[in-house]
Design a protein around this nucleic acid. Structure first.
Lengths: 108, 108
DNA sequence: TGACGGACCTCGCTTTGCGATGCACATTTA
DNA sequence: TAAATGTGCATCGCAAAGCGAGGTCCGTCA
């Protein structure tokens, strides 16, 4: 998968996922990898900065949770502002797809 | 339109357009602007470098043509290798759209 | 003890679009 | 005739974002 295509779609993916349930970083990577059958492996160098940026703008919030074995995980949960932003981003995404498809033709 | 989304889709757009007919730079910009109803204005700073790169890899070829009034235009035409590349890119694009839609849900 | 995997993160590089700017010449308008 | 607009090419420095690589800590299991 051409990485350049991914640019800009990461926040959309992240917010969509977190809209289902709060998740922690490693879990997000694994979920994406599994759901795409391995075609898309979200990289840590892309994930964490994106997550932190989303948190800085208060579209998501994070909290640490301790597991039974004593280890910690940082969970991220979507916030109301994040849901609104997600809705807007999704609209933009649909427009974008329509636009490109107007040039390359619809999916074969 | 979020410019980050555009990244990576420019070669796809360009090759798709040139697959219809040879075009010159300014014409490409105008065509895109008109077909999208103004929502997407391809910028010169994005267009020319992309065009030149496509030419360097021999996916497209260029030639100068003199108009009746004496002015010159640089036309770009798709090459066989470019058509093959376009087909591959389009497949990748379809996959990409499917992938994202698997997360955000289908178009409303 | 040592390897593996879970889990967090950062840093420098590259790519790419954008905004600004520049140049040259034709046509239109004041 | 002079100025403004439009056509047409192009480059430069900047910002954003993904990537690869690297780093740290800790639990588990052989």
């Amino acid at each position: 998968m051409d990485r350049e295509l991914l640019k800009g779609s990461t926040p959309l993916l992240l917010l969509s996922l977190l809209c289902e349930a709060p998740m922690y970083g490693y879990q997000i990577i694994e979920t994406v990898r599994q759901r795409t059958g391995g075609t898309y492996t979200l990289k840590e160098g892309a994930l964490y900065p994106a997550l932190h940026k989303l948190e800085a703008t208060e579209f998501i919030a994070s909290y640490w949770e301790t597991q039974e074995n004593g280890r910690e995980r940082r969970y991220y949960a979507i916030q109301p502002a994040g849901e609104a932003f997600l809705a807007a981003k999704k609209k933009e995404w649909d427009q974008f797809v329509d636009m490109v498809q107007a040039f390359v033709g619809p999916k074969a």
